[in-house]
Design a protein around this nucleic acid. Sequence first.
DNA 1: GTCTATAGTTGGATAGAC
DNA 2: GTCTATCCAACTATAGAC
Lengths: 238, 238
Amino acid sequence: MTSPETAPAALSNVAERRRDPEETQERLLDAAERLFGERGFDGTSLRAVTQAAGTSVSAAHYHFGSKEALLVATIRRRTEPITRARLERLERLEREAAGAPIPLERLLDAFLCPIFEYRAARGDHGETFRRIAARLFSDPPAVVADLKREIFGPTVERFMSALARALPERSSRSIALDLQFLVGVMVHVTSGHLEDAPDGGSVPSLAGLSDERVLGRMIEFVAAGLRAPDRQSGGALR
Amino acid sequence: MTSPETAPAALSNVAERRRDPEETQERLLDAAERLFGERGFDGTSLRAVTQAAGTSVSAAHYHFGSKEALLVATIRRRTEPITRARLERLERLEREAAGAPIPLERLLDAFLCPIFEYRAARGDHGETFRRIAARLFSDPPAVVADLKREIFGPTVERFMSALARALPERSSRSIALDLQFLVGVMVHVTSGHLEDAPDGGSVPSLAGLSDERVLGRMIEFVAAGLRAPDRQSGGALR
DNA sequence: GTCTATAGTTGGATAGAC
DNA sequence: GTCTATCCAACTATAGAC
Protein backbone atom coordinates (compact mmCIF):
# COMPACT_ATOMS: atom_id res chain seq x y z
CA MET A 1 0.00 0.00 0.00
CA THR A 2 2.93 2.34 0.26
CA SER A 3 3.29 3.34 -3.33
CA PRO A 4 5.53 0.91 -5.08
CA GLU A 5 4.59 2.24 -8.49
CA THR A 6 5.68 5.51 -10.00
CA ALA A 7 3.57 8.62 -9.94
CA PRO A 8 -0.13 7.92 -9.84
CA ALA A 9 -0.33 5.37 -7.11
CA ALA A 10 -0.69 5.23 -3.40
CA LEU A 11 -2.03 8.30 -1.69
CA SER A 12 -2.35 6.19 1.39
CA ASN A 13 -1.45 8.51 4.23
CA VAL A 14 -0.07 11.22 2.03
CA ALA A 15 -3.69 11.98 1.18
CA GLU A 16 -4.07 13.29 4.71
CA ARG A 17 -1.69 16.12 3.98
CA ARG A 18 -2.79 16.95 0.50
CA ARG A 19 -5.83 18.90 1.63
CA ASP A 20 -7.70 21.25 -0.56
CA PRO A 21 -5.44 24.29 -0.95
CA GLU A 22 -8.27 26.75 -1.23
CA GLU A 23 -9.78 25.48 1.95
CA THR A 24 -6.48 25.90 3.74
CA GLN A 25 -6.23 29.45 2.49
CA GLU A 26 -9.71 30.21 3.72
CA ARG A 27 -9.02 28.74 7.12
CA LEU A 28 -5.95 30.94 7.30
CA LEU A 29 -7.91 34.01 6.29
CA ASP A 30 -10.64 33.26 8.83
CA ALA A 31 -8.15 32.80 11.63
CA ALA A 32 -6.17 35.88 10.61
CA GLU A 33 -9.30 37.98 10.50
CA ARG A 34 -10.33 36.94 13.96
CA LEU A 35 -6.93 37.27 15.60
CA PHE A 36 -5.73 40.41 13.83
CA GLY A 37 -9.07 41.91 14.76
CA GLU A 38 -8.81 40.95 18.40
CA ARG A 39 -5.16 41.62 19.11
CA GLY A 40 -3.97 43.75 16.22
CA PHE A 41 -1.35 42.95 13.62
CA ASP A 42 1.78 43.32 15.70
CA GLY A 43 0.08 41.72 18.67
CA THR A 44 -0.65 38.54 16.74
CA SER A 45 2.06 36.08 15.83
CA LEU A 46 1.89 34.17 12.60
CA ARG A 47 2.18 31.06 14.72
CA ALA A 48 -0.99 31.88 16.57
CA VAL A 49 -2.81 32.33 13.27
CA THR A 50 -1.57 29.10 11.73
CA GLN A 51 -2.26 27.19 14.90
CA ALA A 52 -5.84 28.47 15.00
CA ALA A 53 -6.17 27.53 11.35
CA GLY A 54 -4.89 24.05 12.06
CA THR A 55 -1.94 24.33 9.76
CA SER A 56 1.70 25.36 9.82
CA VAL A 57 3.73 28.53 9.55
CA SER A 58 5.29 27.43 6.31
CA ALA A 59 1.89 26.75 4.77
CA ALA A 60 1.01 30.38 5.42
CA HIS A 61 4.22 31.50 3.80
CA TYR A 62 3.61 29.23 0.86
CA HIS A 63 0.15 30.64 0.25
CA PHE A 64 0.64 34.30 1.07
CA GLY A 65 4.34 35.00 1.11
CA SER A 66 4.55 36.95 4.35
CA LYS A 67 2.62 37.97 7.41
CA GLU A 68 1.98 41.40 5.94
CA ALA A 69 0.65 39.93 2.72
CA LEU A 70 -1.70 37.79 4.76
CA LEU A 71 -3.07 40.92 6.40
CA VAL A 72 -3.60 42.58 3.06
CA ALA A 73 -5.41 39.53 1.72
CA THR A 74 -7.55 39.41 4.85
CA ILE A 75 -8.65 43.02 4.46
CA ARG A 76 -9.18 42.77 0.73
CA ARG A 77 -11.45 39.76 1.01
CA ARG A 78 -13.95 41.82 3.00
CA THR A 79 -13.60 45.30 1.56
CA GLU A 80 -13.85 44.42 -2.11
CA PRO A 81 -17.46 43.20 -2.07
CA ILE A 82 -18.48 46.18 0.04
CA THR A 83 -16.89 48.70 -2.27
CA ARG A 84 -18.53 46.98 -5.22
CA ALA A 85 -21.95 47.08 -3.53
CA ARG A 86 -21.56 50.76 -2.74
CA LEU A 87 -20.74 51.72 -6.28
CA GLU A 88 -23.47 49.54 -7.72
CA ARG A 89 -26.05 51.18 -5.50
CA LEU A 90 -24.79 54.63 -6.37
CA GLU A 91 -24.85 53.87 -10.08
CA ARG A 92 -28.39 52.58 -9.86
CA LEU A 93 -29.49 55.72 -8.05
CA GLU A 94 -27.86 57.88 -10.70
CA ARG A 95 -29.43 55.86 -13.49
CA GLU A 96 -32.86 56.16 -11.94
CA ALA A 97 -32.46 59.87 -11.23
CA ALA A 98 -31.51 60.52 -14.85
CA GLY A 99 -29.64 63.74 -14.19
CA ALA A 100 -31.78 65.07 -11.35
CA PRO A 101 -30.06 65.51 -7.95
CA ILE A 102 -30.35 62.45 -5.72
CA PRO A 103 -31.92 62.93 -2.29
CA LEU A 104 -29.31 63.06 0.46
CA GLU A 105 -30.76 60.20 2.47
CA ARG A 106 -30.62 57.91 -0.55
CA LEU A 107 -26.95 58.67 -1.07
CA LEU A 108 -26.12 58.04 2.55
CA ASP A 109 -28.01 54.78 2.46
CA ALA A 110 -26.03 53.67 -0.59
CA PHE A 111 -22.81 54.46 1.22
CA LEU A 112 -23.63 53.01 4.63
CA CYS A 113 -26.01 50.13 4.02
CA PRO A 114 -23.55 47.72 2.35
CA ILE A 115 -21.49 47.47 5.52
CA PHE A 116 -24.44 46.46 7.65
CA GLU A 117 -25.81 44.22 4.95
CA TYR A 118 -22.53 42.40 4.67
CA ARG A 119 -22.22 42.00 8.42
CA ALA A 120 -25.71 40.64 8.69
CA ALA A 121 -25.22 38.23 5.80
CA ARG A 122 -22.09 36.73 7.30
CA GLY A 123 -23.47 36.04 10.75
CA ASP A 124 -20.57 35.31 13.07
CA HIS A 125 -18.09 36.56 10.57
CA GLY A 126 -19.78 39.91 10.63
CA GLU A 127 -18.78 40.25 14.24
CA THR A 128 -15.14 39.65 13.46
CA PHE A 129 -15.19 41.67 10.28
CA ARG A 130 -15.92 44.89 12.06
CA ARG A 131 -12.69 44.58 13.99
CA ILE A 132 -10.78 44.39 10.75
CA ALA A 133 -12.52 47.55 9.65
CA ALA A 134 -11.27 49.28 12.77
CA ARG A 135 -7.73 48.05 12.24
CA LEU A 136 -7.74 49.47 8.78
CA PHE A 137 -7.84 52.90 10.34
CA SER A 138 -5.22 52.48 12.99
CA ASP A 139 -2.89 49.58 12.34
CA PRO A 140 0.66 50.61 11.83
CA PRO A 141 1.92 48.63 8.84
CA ALA A 142 2.63 51.07 6.05
CA VAL A 143 0.92 48.77 3.59
CA VAL A 144 -2.35 49.51 5.28
CA ALA A 145 -2.12 53.22 4.51
CA ASP A 146 -1.76 52.49 0.80
CA LEU A 147 -4.57 49.97 1.00
CA LYS A 148 -6.82 52.55 2.61
CA ARG A 149 -6.23 55.00 -0.20
CA GLU A 150 -6.75 52.29 -2.77
CA ILE A 151 -9.98 51.10 -1.21
CA PHE A 152 -11.54 54.40 -0.22
CA GLY A 153 -10.09 56.79 -2.77
CA PRO A 154 -12.29 56.05 -5.79
CA THR A 155 -15.41 55.50 -3.69
CA VAL A 156 -15.02 58.78 -1.81
CA GLU A 157 -14.44 60.53 -5.10
CA ARG A 158 -17.65 59.20 -6.60
CA PHE A 159 -19.75 59.98 -3.54
CA MET A 160 -18.21 63.42 -3.22
CA SER A 161 -19.51 64.33 -6.68
CA ALA A 162 -22.96 63.00 -5.89
CA LEU A 163 -23.07 64.88 -2.58
CA ALA A 164 -21.99 68.10 -4.26
CA ARG A 165 -24.96 67.81 -6.58
CA ALA A 166 -27.32 67.05 -3.70
CA LEU A 167 -26.04 70.07 -1.75
CA PRO A 168 -25.50 72.77 -4.38
CA GLU A 169 -25.30 75.60 -1.85
CA ARG A 170 -22.29 74.12 -0.03
CA SER A 171 -18.64 74.53 -1.05
CA SER A 172 -16.84 71.33 -2.01
CA ARG A 173 -14.25 71.82 0.69
CA SER A 174 -16.93 72.13 3.30
CA ILE A 175 -18.62 68.98 2.03
CA ALA A 176 -15.30 67.14 2.05
CA LEU A 177 -14.91 68.05 5.71
CA ASP A 178 -18.39 66.81 6.55
CA LEU A 179 -17.67 63.64 4.62
CA GLN A 180 -14.80 62.96 7.00
CA PHE A 181 -17.19 63.43 9.92
CA LEU A 182 -19.38 60.82 8.28
CA VAL A 183 -16.43 58.46 7.95
CA GLY A 184 -15.66 58.99 11.63
CA VAL A 185 -19.17 57.99 12.61
CA MET A 186 -19.09 55.00 10.31
CA VAL A 187 -15.76 53.72 11.57
CA HIS A 188 -16.76 54.16 15.18
CA VAL A 189 -20.00 52.26 14.73
CA THR A 190 -18.55 49.58 12.47
CA SER A 191 -15.71 48.97 14.88
CA GLY A 192 -18.21 47.84 17.46
CA HIS A 193 -17.60 50.64 19.93
CA LEU A 194 -21.33 50.95 20.47
CA GLU A 195 -21.43 47.66 22.32
CA ASP A 196 -18.71 48.52 24.76
CA ALA A 197 -19.52 52.17 25.21
CA PRO A 198 -19.54 53.12 28.87
CA ASP A 199 -23.01 52.92 30.38
CA GLY A 200 -24.56 53.03 33.80
CA GLY A 201 -26.13 55.84 35.75
CA SER A 202 -27.97 58.12 33.38
CA VAL A 203 -26.34 56.53 30.33
CA PRO A 204 -28.38 53.64 28.92
CA SER A 205 -26.60 50.71 27.26
CA LEU A 206 -26.64 50.53 23.48
CA ALA A 207 -25.85 46.83 23.28
CA GLY A 208 -29.30 45.66 22.21
CA LEU A 209 -29.89 48.01 19.29
CA SER A 210 -30.64 46.42 15.93
CA ASP A 211 -28.60 47.22 12.84
CA GLU A 212 -31.66 48.78 11.21
CA ARG A 213 -32.15 51.07 14.18
CA VAL A 214 -28.54 52.23 14.20
CA LEU A 215 -28.32 52.63 10.44
CA GLY A 216 -31.56 54.58 10.34
CA ARG A 217 -30.51 56.99 13.04
CA MET A 218 -27.05 57.36 11.54
CA ILE A 219 -28.57 58.50 8.27
CA GLU A 220 -30.88 60.97 10.03
CA PHE A 221 -28.01 62.32 12.11
CA VAL A 222 -25.53 62.71 9.30
CA ALA A 223 -28.08 64.07 6.83
CA ALA A 224 -29.00 66.80 9.29
CA GLY A 225 -25.32 67.62 9.76
CA LEU A 226 -24.73 67.81 6.03
CA ARG A 227 -27.71 70.09 5.58
CA ALA A 228 -26.61 72.46 8.34
CA PRO A 229 -25.35 75.66 6.72
CA ASP A 230 -21.64 76.32 7.14
CA ARG A 231 -21.40 79.81 8.60
CA GLN A 232 -17.65 80.08 8.29
CA SER A 233 -17.11 79.26 4.64
CA GLY A 234 -18.81 80.06 1.38
CA GLY A 235 -21.92 78.37 2.66
CA ALA A 236 -25.49 79.41 2.17
CA LEU A 237 -25.90 82.05 4.88
CA ARG A 238 -22.38 83.40 4.78
CA MET B 1 24.61 77.06 46.23
CA THR B 2 25.56 73.49 45.53
CA SER B 3 25.35 72.19 49.07
CA PRO B 4 28.79 70.78 49.63
CA GLU B 5 27.98 69.60 53.14
CA THR B 6 26.20 66.43 54.12
CA ALA B 7 26.06 64.11 51.10
CA PRO B 8 29.72 65.00 51.04
CA ALA B 9 31.49 62.53 48.89
CA ALA B 10 32.92 62.48 45.44
CA LEU B 11 30.28 63.01 42.79
CA SER B 12 33.12 63.11 40.32
CA ASN B 13 31.77 61.24 37.33
CA VAL B 14 28.90 59.64 39.11
CA ALA B 15 27.18 63.01 38.85
CA GLU B 16 26.86 62.30 35.16
CA ARG B 17 24.56 59.41 35.81
CA ARG B 18 22.60 60.86 38.67
CA ARG B 19 20.38 62.93 36.43
CA ASP B 20 17.13 64.44 37.52
CA PRO B 21 14.73 61.51 37.87
CA GLU B 22 11.68 63.51 36.91
CA GLU B 23 13.37 64.68 33.78
CA THR B 24 14.22 61.11 32.84
CA GLN B 25 10.62 60.10 33.36
CA GLU B 26 9.43 62.90 31.15
CA ARG B 27 11.87 62.03 28.41
CA LEU B 28 10.58 58.47 28.56
CA LEU B 29 6.99 59.61 28.40
CA ASP B 30 7.73 61.90 25.45
CA ALA B 31 9.47 59.16 23.52
CA ALA B 32 6.78 56.62 24.37
CA GLU B 33 4.07 58.98 23.27
CA ARG B 34 5.70 59.57 19.93
CA LEU B 35 6.61 55.97 19.18
CA PHE B 36 3.47 54.29 20.51
CA GLY B 37 1.54 56.82 18.50
CA GLU B 38 3.44 56.17 15.31
CA ARG B 39 3.84 52.41 15.43
CA GLY B 40 1.39 51.23 18.04
CA PHE B 41 2.07 49.50 21.32
CA ASP B 42 2.98 46.06 20.07
CA GLY B 43 4.84 47.55 17.14
CA THR B 44 7.16 49.50 19.41
CA SER B 45 9.89 47.84 21.44
CA LEU B 46 10.77 49.14 24.84
CA ARG B 47 14.34 49.34 23.57
CA ALA B 48 13.30 51.76 20.85
CA VAL B 49 11.58 53.97 23.41
CA THR B 50 14.48 54.05 25.84
CA GLN B 51 16.96 54.67 23.06
CA ALA B 52 14.92 57.62 21.80
CA ALA B 53 14.76 58.90 25.37
CA GLY B 54 18.52 58.57 25.74
CA THR B 55 18.30 56.17 28.62
CA SER B 56 18.24 52.45 29.28
CA VAL B 57 15.69 49.68 29.38
CA SER B 58 16.25 49.15 33.06
CA ALA B 59 15.64 52.81 33.81
CA ALA B 60 12.23 52.45 32.23
CA HIS B 61 11.53 49.41 34.33
CA TYR B 62 12.70 51.21 37.42
CA HIS B 63 10.40 54.15 36.85
CA PHE B 64 7.31 52.48 35.44
CA GLY B 65 7.56 48.78 36.19
CA SER B 66 6.62 47.42 32.78
CA LYS B 67 6.02 48.37 29.20
CA GLU B 68 2.27 48.26 29.73
CA ALA B 69 2.49 50.54 32.76
CA LEU B 70 4.49 52.98 30.65
CA LEU B 71 1.67 53.06 28.12
CA VAL B 72 -0.88 53.74 30.83
CA ALA B 73 1.21 56.57 32.24
CA THR B 74 1.64 58.01 28.76
CA ILE B 75 -2.08 58.10 28.14
CA ARG B 76 -2.94 59.40 31.58
CA ARG B 77 -0.56 62.34 31.34
CA ARG B 78 -2.54 63.73 28.41
CA THR B 79 -6.09 62.70 29.18
CA GLU B 80 -6.27 63.92 32.75
CA PRO B 81 -5.91 67.64 32.04
CA ILE B 82 -8.39 67.34 29.19
CA THR B 83 -10.99 65.61 31.30
CA ARG B 84 -10.52 68.21 34.00
CA ALA B 85 -10.92 71.07 31.53
CA ARG B 86 -14.08 69.50 30.15
CA LEU B 87 -15.71 69.16 33.52
CA GLU B 88 -14.65 72.63 34.61
CA ARG B 89 -16.20 74.16 31.51
CA LEU B 90 -19.38 72.20 32.00
CA GLU B 91 -19.63 73.20 35.64
CA ARG B 92 -19.16 76.84 34.78
CA LEU B 93 -21.89 76.64 32.17
CA GLU B 94 -24.23 75.03 34.67
CA ARG B 95 -23.42 77.62 37.30
CA GLU B 96 -24.08 80.47 34.90
CA ALA B 97 -27.28 78.91 33.60
CA ALA B 98 -28.61 78.53 37.14
CA GLY B 99 -31.04 75.76 36.34
CA ALA B 100 -32.04 76.83 32.86
CA PRO B 101 -31.19 74.45 30.02
CA ILE B 102 -27.81 75.12 28.43
CA PRO B 103 -27.72 75.79 24.69
CA LEU B 104 -26.57 72.75 22.74
CA GLU B 105 -23.68 74.51 21.03
CA ARG B 106 -22.28 75.61 24.37
CA LEU B 107 -22.30 72.05 25.65
CA LEU B 108 -20.59 70.72 22.55
CA ASP B 109 -17.99 73.45 22.80
CA ALA B 110 -17.26 72.49 26.41
CA PHE B 111 -16.82 68.89 25.36
CA LEU B 112 -14.76 69.39 22.21
CA CYS B 113 -12.76 72.55 22.74
CA PRO B 114 -10.38 71.23 25.43
CA ILE B 115 -8.85 68.75 23.00
CA PHE B 116 -8.04 71.37 20.43
CA GLU B 117 -6.93 73.83 23.06
CA TYR B 118 -4.55 71.30 24.53
CA ARG B 119 -3.14 70.40 21.16
CA ALA B 120 -2.57 74.01 20.27
CA ALA B 121 -0.95 74.80 23.59
CA ARG B 122 1.56 71.99 23.28
CA GLY B 123 2.79 72.79 19.79
CA ASP B 124 4.69 69.81 18.47
CA HIS B 125 3.45 67.62 21.22
CA GLY B 126 -0.07 68.27 20.09
CA GLU B 127 0.76 66.53 16.86
CA THR B 128 1.93 63.42 18.64
CA PHE B 129 -0.78 63.50 21.24
CA ARG B 130 -3.53 62.95 18.74
CA ARG B 131 -1.98 59.63 17.78
CA ILE B 132 -2.21 58.51 21.36
CA ALA B 133 -5.85 59.47 21.35
CA ALA B 134 -6.39 57.20 18.37
CA ARG B 135 -4.56 54.33 20.03
CA LEU B 136 -6.80 54.61 23.03
CA PHE B 137 -9.62 53.40 20.84
CA SER B 138 -7.92 50.57 19.08
CA ASP B 139 -4.83 49.33 20.87
CA PRO B 140 -5.13 45.80 22.06
CA PRO B 141 -3.75 45.74 25.59
CA ALA B 142 -6.62 44.93 27.90
CA VAL B 143 -5.53 47.67 30.26
CA VAL B 144 -6.52 50.19 27.68
CA ALA B 145 -10.15 49.09 27.74
CA ASP B 146 -10.36 49.69 31.48
CA LEU B 147 -8.58 52.98 31.09
CA LYS B 148 -11.08 54.07 28.47
CA ARG B 149 -13.98 53.38 30.80
CA GLU B 150 -12.23 55.14 33.64
CA ILE B 151 -11.42 58.20 31.58
CA PHE B 152 -14.61 58.55 29.60
CA GLY B 153 -17.18 57.04 31.91
CA PRO B 154 -17.76 59.90 34.36
CA THR B 155 -17.40 62.58 31.69
CA VAL B 156 -19.89 60.94 29.36
CA GLU B 157 -22.27 60.56 32.26
CA ARG B 158 -22.13 64.24 33.13
CA PHE B 159 -22.53 65.40 29.57
CA MET B 160 -25.34 62.93 29.00
CA SER B 161 -27.37 64.57 31.73
CA ALA B 162 -26.70 68.03 30.38
CA LEU B 163 -27.65 66.97 26.86
CA ALA B 164 -30.85 65.39 28.08
CA ARG B 165 -31.87 68.72 29.57
CA ALA B 166 -30.93 70.58 26.39
CA LEU B 167 -32.96 68.16 24.29
CA PRO B 168 -36.05 67.43 26.37
CA GLU B 169 -38.01 65.94 23.46
CA ARG B 170 -35.47 63.17 22.81
CA SER B 171 -35.31 59.83 24.63
CA SER B 172 -32.15 59.20 26.63
CA ARG B 173 -31.34 56.09 24.65
CA SER B 174 -31.55 58.01 21.43
CA ILE B 175 -29.30 60.72 22.81
CA ALA B 176 -26.82 58.11 24.01
CA LEU B 177 -26.64 56.77 20.46
CA ASP B 178 -26.05 60.22 19.02
CA LEU B 179 -23.41 60.81 21.66
CA GLN B 180 -21.52 57.84 20.28
CA PHE B 181 -21.74 59.37 16.82
CA LEU B 182 -20.21 62.49 18.31
CA VAL B 183 -17.41 60.43 19.84
CA GLY B 184 -16.79 58.83 16.46
CA VAL B 185 -16.40 62.23 14.81
CA MET B 186 -14.16 63.44 17.61
CA VAL B 187 -11.88 60.42 17.51
CA HIS B 188 -11.58 60.51 13.75
CA VAL B 189 -10.65 64.18 13.72
CA THR B 190 -8.38 64.01 16.74
CA SER B 191 -6.56 61.04 15.30
CA GLY B 192 -5.39 63.19 12.44
CA HIS B 193 -7.25 61.36 9.71
CA LEU B 194 -8.24 64.68 8.20
CA GLU B 195 -4.70 65.33 7.06
CA ASP B 196 -4.27 62.05 5.29
CA ALA B 197 -7.77 61.69 3.93
CA PRO B 198 -7.68 60.74 0.28
CA ASP B 199 -7.92 63.77 -1.98
CA GLY B 200 -7.50 64.54 -5.64
CA GLY B 201 -10.00 64.84 -8.44
CA SER B 202 -13.18 66.38 -7.11
CA VAL B 203 -12.08 65.91 -3.48
CA PRO B 204 -10.19 68.91 -2.11
CA SER B 205 -7.46 68.38 0.47
CA LEU B 206 -8.27 69.20 4.10
CA ALA B 207 -4.67 69.54 5.20
CA GLY B 208 -4.63 73.32 5.56
CA LEU B 209 -7.71 73.77 7.72
CA SER B 210 -7.26 75.58 11.01
CA ASP B 211 -8.34 74.06 14.30
CA GLU B 212 -10.92 76.82 14.75
CA ARG B 213 -12.41 76.07 11.38
CA VAL B 214 -12.67 72.34 12.05
CA LEU B 215 -13.98 72.76 15.58
CA GLY B 216 -16.56 75.30 14.46
CA ARG B 217 -17.89 73.10 11.70
CA MET B 218 -17.85 70.03 13.95
CA ILE B 219 -20.11 71.78 16.41
CA GLU B 220 -22.50 72.92 13.68
CA PHE B 221 -22.58 69.44 12.17
CA VAL B 222 -23.11 67.55 15.41
CA ALA B 223 -25.61 70.04 16.82
CA ALA B 224 -27.74 69.66 13.71
CA GLY B 225 -27.56 65.90 14.05
CA LEU B 226 -28.56 66.01 17.70
CA ARG B 227 -31.51 68.27 16.91
CA ALA B 228 -32.75 66.03 14.12
CA PRO B 229 -35.89 64.26 15.34
CA ASP B 230 -35.58 60.50 15.77
CA ARG B 231 -38.42 59.02 13.77
CA GLN B 232 -37.90 55.46 14.95
CA SER B 233 -37.95 55.90 18.71
CA GLY B 234 -39.90 57.91 21.19
CA GLY B 235 -38.70 61.07 19.52
CA ALA B 236 -40.67 64.21 18.93
CA LEU B 237 -42.46 63.39 15.69
CA ARG B 238 -42.84 59.72 16.37
C1' DG C 1 0.91 21.32 -0.69
C1' DT C 2 2.17 20.45 3.77
C1' DC C 3 5.07 19.19 7.21
C1' DT C 4 9.42 19.28 10.79
C1' DA C 5 13.52 21.44 11.97
C1' DT C 6 16.25 25.22 12.37
C1' DA C 7 18.45 29.55 11.34
C1' DG C 8 18.95 34.11 12.86
C1' DT C 9 16.69 38.13 15.30
C1' DT C 10 14.64 40.51 18.58
C1' DG C 11 11.64 40.89 22.43
C1' DG C 12 10.65 42.03 27.86
C1' DA C 13 12.53 41.59 32.02
C1' DT C 14 16.15 41.15 35.76
C1' DA C 15 20.82 41.07 38.49
C1' DG C 16 24.32 43.50 40.11
C1' DA C 17 27.96 47.04 39.65
C1' DC C 18 28.49 51.92 40.55
C1' DG D 1 18.90 56.36 39.80
C1' DT D 2 21.26 54.61 36.06
C1' DC D 3 24.04 51.69 33.73
C1' DT D 4 26.02 46.96 31.44
C1' DA D 5 25.44 42.31 30.80
C1' DT D 6 22.61 38.49 30.43
C1' DC D 7 18.59 35.18 30.51
C1' DC D 8 15.27 33.02 28.08
C1' DA D 9 11.20 33.12 25.49
C1' DA D 10 9.10 34.14 21.08
C1' DC D 11 9.25 35.75 16.65
C1' DT D 12 9.56 35.59 11.07
C1' DA D 13 11.29 33.24 7.55
C1' DT D 14 13.50 29.43 5.10
C1' DA D 15 15.38 24.68 3.89
C1' DG D 16 14.42 20.24 2.90
C1' DA D 17 11.90 15.78 3.62
C1' DC D 18 7.72 13.63 2.06
